[in-house]
Structures are given as structure tokens and as C-alpha cells.
Write a protein that binds this DNA or RNA. Sequence first.
DNA 1: TTTGTGCCCGATACCGTTGCCGGCAACGCT
DNA 2: AGCGTTGCCGGCAACGGTATCGGGCACAAA
Lengths: 345, 345
Amino acid sequence: MNRPATIKDIARKLNISISTVSRALRNASDVNSDTKNAVLALSEELNYQPNKLAVSLRQNQTHTIGVIVPNLDYVIATMVKGIDEAALEAGYTVMVCQSNESFGREILNTRRLLDSLVDGFIISVSSETKSFEHFKKIQERNIPIVVFDRITPALVAPSVRLDNEEGGFIATEHLLEQGYKRIAILAGPENLGISNSRMDGYLNALKKYKIKSDNNLIIHCDFNQDYAFFATQELLAMKKRPDAIFTISDRMAIGAMLAIKQKGLKMPQDIGLVGFNNEPVVGLVTPGISSVEMPCFEIGKVAAKLFIETMYHNEDMSNVEKILKPKLIIRESSQRILPATRRLR
Amino acid sequence: MNRPATIKDIARKLNISISTVSRALRNASDVNSDTKNAVLALSEELNYQPNKLAVSLRQNQTHTIGVIVPNLDYVIATMVKGIDEAALEAGYTVMVCQSNESFGREILNTRRLLDSLVDGFIISVSSETKSFEHFKKIQERNIPIVVFDRITPALVAPSVRLDNEEGGFIATEHLLEQGYKRIAILAGPENLGISNSRMDGYLNALKKYKIKSDNNLIIHCDFNQDYAFFATQELLAMKKRPDAIFTISDRMAIGAMLAIKQKGLKMPQDIGLVGFNNEPVVGLVTPGISSVEMPCFEIGKVAAKLFIETMYHNEDMSNVEKILKPKLIIRESSQRILPATRRLR
DNA sequence: TTTGTGCCCGATACCGTTGCCGGCAACGCT
DNA sequence: AGCGTTGCCGGCAACGGTATCGGGCACAAA
């Protein structure tokens, strides 16, 4: 049948040895230019494609990167796109697995990818993950790991992330500049590093403006629209209710928005709101929600490039840390003081 | 070094032959239960994992499915999740490539996956694709292809899709029932099957209600928010402007919504709007946009199952066609006549 | 004793490719 | 003439498994 041509077919037709064909197809050195041309011509004609399995088996590397992510929402999907693009440029393919924020799935996927003999991993850990033994075991086998976005000190590896503290800071500072005084924060689970960093930024901004923080205004809740909805309801039911809310994700900001609307409060007059991620949806709702934008695609690209680097340099790079800067996108939900010229759309 | 254990290591330690170990690990027949147990125990202890490359090379199949999609928006990402889940259950892994709606990228990705020796493909074609030679060549090599969501008569293969005609029908009928008379449709590119089917449904509904269609109300535009925005602007500038718009995607519905708001018109009073896909965002904007929901996850699962079937039955299944039903989700944007009981939220 | 018959197991080829090693001819240099 | 060098090429083992074939052995049947 129409089986793909192999190196053997070429060798047989040309009456030369397999080794020569193999050399002609790659090194190109150590082989006469006539025979080389003949080989190249014939391989073209037969539409020869090297069998990746055989190459990988022989060379003990697959040129494949295992990517493990907690989910594929807008932010992470964009990062994955960045990874894919940079990996492709470097001749790598990626296999993506979602852990669905579940520790068990994360372990399962790690196994799956390891079985598929990936050369290494690019990982963003699940929010549920508290133990990192499964990743450490991989590192002990000298399989490189790069972590991105959600990183943790418990896993020592080269990393790429947003400056989350800065993100929390500029969001909060913006609210303060707009004259809001009692600013609440909807944070994520307490063990989640990105949440804590964003909260640190929030606290720093308060400190800079000499406002002392109020623990009643710091809410930890699940990374999730419904929880944010209920948490906001409670915040708004307080006797001294906050006059602004900073949520550490846009999904939570949407939840907060729904609760605010339900209560009949107006943004930005009665209450200010700033989210995080700048997903497209926050520009579509009414009023538009201000949000901290992160360079997702770029983070993905940098992560992949860092991975490739660790593959080729074999010094220890586990202390390399790339940090990208956020940018505040201001919309109606938080803009009480209009700019001199004219109102933003 | 800490290299993973191989079948040879087990054989050596147990003083038996490689073949026996191999048999003990799979067939389990034709091998004494004592030796089998010994092998299993030792392989457990050494944490033996069969090398997939070697197995695949020998057996000439990789248990990997290549999935080619035009993008990874909400709808398709959900379908891919469904594919992944069903594939995993059947012992397959998937490799996903995005073509970014580009014909060139689609061909490139096909090559990439073919190089990686996938056992077959599950495909949703790019909107740019008009020639299917690259897929037909694959079929000639007896590599199975299943198409889903966006299918085309030009490619004969087992398929899974939504009943798009029905979707267009129920959306339009709903608008008619609400008393809208001049219903425009924002359709996609003219060569895109799903767009045409949804439009057929639209036309059928008009016919059923004895309204003759008006070509001025049928707009083909790119599958994209901005184009939909401009197209809607033009529609609204007509002297006899439509009193309702049906868009064949939610992204386009968002664009239409923005144009409607800009013009200062109110939904549902001045104009009705129904989208397609029921992405989360249409429930979050104000007013909520009615939309035709499709069972994305299910479509993905069915596609993967169908693929597995074609792998094991070797009769020709290219005429198998699975069609799933849509469901209309009604929100404020189109609900002029309130239900007797009370208004939906 | 011979023959048949399962049961277990080992030897070996093979999948497609690469890497090492060595061979051989041609050539130039002492 | 003898030597080393260089250019080109082929043989062979190896990567880690699987599949086929056949052989040894014990035991029953002829």
C-alpha cells in the first residue's frame, strides 16, 4: 500500500547504504555532493518524511514540551498560544493538558505526558495544589521544568510571571486617586501566590496613602463568579460598607458587578470597581469595568523561550526569574474624576 | 543515572528472557502465573513505564489523535475538552493545533501532526479553506478523519455537528412570535456551511410565517465583532430599518449590540436581537442577549467516540452523520412579550 | 517406546533511524 | 616505497519494545 517512504527505500533505489542516505539527509558533510544531490532529489520525489518515532527513540528526545495548565480560560489560552508560537519557531511541539484546578488531574496529566516522553514541562499549577512532590521527582530525573503565571516558592525552577504586586498596587492606587476611601479586596484562596502578591500590592498602596487596612474588607473566596457575587453581597450589607472593590480576577469582578447592580448601586458614583486580567468581557458590560491588563501572549512566549534556553544551556537556571509589567486599563466602573479633555468611551 | 527502567532490566534481574517479560506485562496468557507475578512485582518496584515510542514504532500506531481547529474560542475550547475526555477514556491522547482561520496554517498543522504520526484526525475546518486536497490525500492513505462542527460536503467523512438549520429556525421563529416583522440576519462568509445552514433555517421560519425575505436584510460579513458592528450600523441607517437582528454568532451579536446602543435604540422595545452559541458573555451584558445554545462538550465527546469507532470497525463509515439539537435561551434582548407569570431575570 | 499435546519459555527478526567505527581508494609527502 | 591524511562510504549495534516461530519438557494416549 501507499506506505510512506523510508530511508531504506531511498538506499535501495540508489544502490547505496542506509548510513549514507542518513548522512546525506542531515549532516551533509562527509558525503559526496553528487550522491547527496541524488538522495535529496529522490527523497523529494518520494515525499520522504523522517519517522519521528524512530528518531526520537534513537536520540532519546522527542522535541515535545508538556504544558500543564489549570484550565483554558481566556488568559491561559492566550498564554498557551504564546508558548505554542515560540515553541514552533524553535522546532518544538507542545502537548497541552488541563488539570481543571484539580490536584488529582494534575498528577494524572503529569504521568500522561511523562509517558509520552516529553522533553520537559512548562507548568502553571492548579489552585488546589499544595504538594509538589510529583514535580520534584521529575526534576530529580533531570527533566527540565519551567513554571509560569502561577508560581510558588515551593517549586524551585526558572519562572515567568507578571509583577502581581505592581498590578495590585496600580489598581488600588488608581481607586485612591479617584477619591475612594474604603476599598475592599476580593482575593483568592489563601495559598495562591498570585492572589497574595496582588494583595500585597493592595496593602502597599493603602500604606502609601496612609490608610490603615481593615481586615473586614479583605475577603478570601474561590476564584469564581458565584462566590464573588455572594461575597460582594455581604460586603454591601455591612453597616460601613466599602466604597470601592478591587477583585483579583475579572471573573470575580463580574460577580461583584452583578451584586452591585442587584443592590441598585451605581458605578462609579456609589461604588468603584477594578478587576484583573482585562478579559474582553469587562469592556462589553455596562458600565465597562476597569482592569489590570497582563501581557498574556508575551508571558507564554517568554516561558517557551526560557524553556528552550534551559534545554541548551545545561547550567542550573532555576533562579532565573522573568517578571513582566502590568498596565491599568481605566473604564467607567472606577472613573469618578473625569479627565480634563473628555470622557473615555 | 536515574534512567527509567526497561523491560531488559526486569529480564536481567529475574534471569528470564525479554520476551517472557513482555508477555507477562500484557497478554498475561501463555506465561506461568508465578513468573508473571514476579514480573509484575518487580516492574512495580522499579516503577516501570513502557516506552511509548518503542511500542508505537513497532505497532505502527501512536494512539494519538490530531485535532485541528480554526481557533480556541469558548465554543471550540469546550468541544476540545469533550474530545479530550472521551479520547482519554479510550486510551488515546490528543494533540491540538489551531489554524487561526488560515488555510496556510491549516496545511502546516496537518503536516506537523502527520509528522508526529497521529493515528488520525478530528477536524473543524478553517473558514478560509476552500480546497480540501490536503485532507483527501490523507484519506487516500487510509488515515481516518472525522469532521465536526464546521463540516463541508466537499470532504466525505463521518461527521458530528449541530442541527444548524434548526438553530436558525428556532431563533427566527422566536423573533416572529415576539411580533418582530422585519428581521435581518448577519451571516458569515458565503462559503461557510454552518452559516448557510443557519440562514436556511432563518428563511424557512420566514416562509412558515408567510413573510417574504428581503435581500437587503441578509448581510454576509466576517465572523467578527467589528465587521458586525459596521454592518449593523448600515442596517440601522436604512430608511426602512429592520426591527430585529439574528446573528449567527455571539461575537457578532456583541458587535450588533454595540452599534444598537450607539444609535440610542433600546432592546427589546425598538429592536430585537438573538445570537448564536450562548457564550457566557451574552448573559453578562445589559440587556442579556438571547442566544441559541449548542451542546459543545457533547459534540466533542461524540466526535471522539465516532473516531474511535472508525478505528476499530473497518467498514467505511464516511456516511455516518451525527446531528445534535440546539436549544434557544431567551433573555431580555428579544423578549417583548413577557411570559404570563413573571419576567425572567 | 513412540507419538501427540499443551504449557512455558527463549531466540530472533523487526519497526526506522542514528552514531560509531573501520575500510578503502586516492593523493601528497618524506 | 612507505607513510599519514583525507574524502567517501558501508557495516553494525543500538534505542525499547512486539510478534512469530519453534523448542524443551511433562504428561497422557497409542
